[in-house]
Each structure stands twice: as structure tokens, then as C-alpha cells.
Write a protein that binds this DNA or RNA. Structure first.
Lengths: 189, 189
DNA sequence: GTATTTGCCTAATGCCTCTAGGTAATTCCT
DNA sequence: AGGAATTACCTAGAGGCATTAGGCAAATAC
């Protein structure tokens, strides 16, 4: 009969923490309820369904990630900004693997618009101000940067680089060097 | 009482086709059994469990993808090879989204070793023969290429590029140009 | 043409999702 | 402060998926 005082927020945070512990795919209504010490059915006053729960974790994580990256980016420009952005991004994924996995959840258009996804894009664009790129090239460059960050981190998470000797850190650093080179020598259309 | 003649292969193919239709996360023992017109329990003579089923789809897809990429790569070198590789990779992901998603499944070390994952690495290395890269740089470059391919395709699949005007095709092509530039101007350590 | 294998079945258990409806704790109002 | 309204959490139950155990009949082997 002791009421613990659940709210949608608390449920979402518990789910996010659980995701970091056991992986995002393990985030289930029952598991979160178990952690919170309540019955599964009790959570349905706060969330619509599992999909809703997972979406909330995704939105939360996108916002957290945007905060981290934004803070890292403050006051930097050029390659400095590029490296700061990339390292903050990668650090978040290592520190919060479950939350990071959540950010890859496919969000519906209206949810995506309401989330921090836009902040990510504008921050990536901010990096490019340190390089001389035309407007139309910027979109392409943003996509390339995002692809590299996401692709590298995601392959690293799923153990894609394990069999080789070379440290993942070293390759990451070289990848950033390479991105700097290409932003300084952007190929003409 | 009509026996349909199931085998592990047929089950795996059915699962792969189902993945392409409804997404890899929808690949469930029940769903595959339903499609094949048998009871769920009947599949357990051919597969160990869901994880095993999904792993088989992943291994199948990795092999198919390696075949496609290998064929596209034949007789090409330099940027030509780079573009052929990348386009074959991306085309496969568009044609078989469920199978492609399966390739991202984290495989255990022994399964990964037995799968076509090694062919992917060696083909990527083959591309680099057209560029003048030192041995130690090659690993970094392979990782960068793989990150870009996977990252771009994966973001494209999950609708990451929808809100912007510019066509995903155009940005892809520029990304390949950019990779060519950076491979020709690989930054010194 | 019997013996053996094996492909597919039914039955049963357990976990998960989700709905409906109930009770008790909190908050709101005067 | 005390009754009313809200709300936090519960029990009960239906339905889906994963998985095991054990059975029967169809294919195959000799």
C-alpha cells in the first residue's frame, strides 16, 4: 500500500538506466516494473505501451546527447570543434550504451520533430562554419559527418573492430583527421 | 499430414524474406512458422531457438552481401572500385532492408569467424590497393570506409535524411567523392 | 515389408503485453 | 477538518511468443 510516486519521467529514467545495464532491447514493461517494485499493469497509467516507453527513452537520450555535445562544442571552432563534437558523441555512446542504442530507434515524423534531433543537425552545421563550404555542400557534409560518427560508434559497439590488433581509439583519431582533411578540400560538384 | 519438407535452409530463407517484408525485429519463430504453414514447435527440429534463427539470417545475409559486393568489385580499381563497392552495398540495403538489418546483429566470435565477415574486410582492403596507403594506415582506412557505408545506409534506412530537401542519392555520391579525396590525401600520423 | 528414422503434431509452462475494473491513498475544496 | 474528487497502484484475465517433452505417421533403408 506504500505508494512510491511514479510519474512518466521516473518510469522513463528507470527504463533508460535499465537499458544501459542490460541493453535497450531488454527494456520491457515487466522489467521496468520489476525494478520499480510495482506490477506491470501499474505502469500503463504512465505510459501508453512498450513502444511509447522506448520512444520516451529515445527522446530523453537524444536530448541528453545534444546537451553533452552542445557543452563540448561551446567556444570551439574548426577542427577543435569537430574533435570535441565527435569525442563527446562517442563518449556518450560508451558511457550509456543502452541510451545510445535508443537514439537509433526510428521515431515517427512528429515525434522526431519534437525531439532534439534538430539540435543535432544545427550543431553539426555549426562545426562547418569553421570550414569554407557553400550552402548546398553543407547538407552533404553534415550527412557525411553524421554517418561517420554514427557508423563508427555503432560498429564499435557491436564489436566490429575486435578481431584486429589496432586500437579503436587510434583509428577514431585518424578518422577525425581524415574528416578535417576532406572538409578543407571539399570536392567540387 | 502433408509434409512440406522443411530444412534449416528453407526456414532461414523464409525468415530472411519475412525480415525484408516486416523488418528484422519482426522475425519471430511463430511468425516464420505461420508463413510456412506449420506449428511453432515444429521449427525447433531445425533451429535451436530464436537467437539461432536470427543468427542464421545474419550469416546468410552477410554472405549474400559479400557476393554482391564481390561481383561489383571484379575488374575495378581505384575510385571505380570504391564507388562500385559502395553502391553495391547501398543497393543491397535498399533491396533487402530486413536482411541488411540482420547483418548488424552482434555475432559471437566463433560465428563471426565462420561467416563472410572476413570477406568484407578483405574486399575493403582490396579497394585500398588502388591508393598509396601504408600498412598501418590501411586498418584505419578500412574502418573509416566501413563506418561511412554503414553509417550512411543505416541513417538513410531509419529516415534520418527525410526532413531535408536534398536527395539522399546526391549526398551519397558526394560522400564517395569525399572518401576518394581523403584516400588520396591521407593525413600523416 | 518390416524397422528405423524423422518431420510435424499436441500439450503444457512461463514470460510478456495490455485491458478492465477495483481499492486505497492523496489532494482539493470549503 | 472533513467530505469529494482524483489518482496511484492492485488483481484478474486474455492473448501472443519461446521453448520443452513426448507422440504419431510418413518417408526411407534394408
Amino acid at each position: 500500500m506504500a505508494r512510491i510516486g511514479l510519474t512518466t519521467q521516473r518510469v522513463t529514467f528507470a527504463a533508460a538506466d535499465l537499458a544501459d545495464e542490460i541493453g535497450f532491447e531488454g527494456v520491457t514493461v515487466s522489467a521496468v516494473a520489476r525494478i520499480l517494485g510495482v506490477r506491470d499493469a501499474s505502469l500503463y497509467s504512465h505510459i501508453k505501451n512498450v513502444r511509447d516507453l522506448r520512444t520516451r527513452v529515445a527522446v530523453l537520450s537524444l536530448a541528453e546527447l545534444a546537451d553533452r555535445v552542445g557543452a563540448a562544442l561551446a567556444g570551439r571552432a574548426g577542427k577543435d570543434a569537430l574533435v570535441a563534437f565527435a569525442n563527446a558523441y562517442r563518449a556518450y555512446s560508451k558511457e550509456h550504451p543502452g541510451r545510445y542504442a535508443a537514439t537509433l530507434l526510428e521515431l515517427g515524423p512528429e515525434v522526431a520533430a519534437a525531439s532534439a534531433a534538430g539540435r543535432h543537425a544545427s550543431m553539426t552545421r555549426a562545426i562547418l562554419r569553421g570550414y569554407a563550404l557553400e550552402e548546398s555542400d553543407q547538407t552533404d557534409a553534415v550527412r557525411l559527418l553524421h554517418s561517420v560518427f554514427h557508423g563508427y560508434v555503432s560498429l564499435e559497439c557491436s564489436g566490429g573492430f575486435q578481431n584486429t590488433q589496432r586500437a579503436a581509439d587510434a583509428s577514431w583519431s585518424r578518422a577525425l583527421d581524415a574528416l578535417d582533411v576532406v572538409l578543407n578540400n571539399w570536392p567540387p560538384a
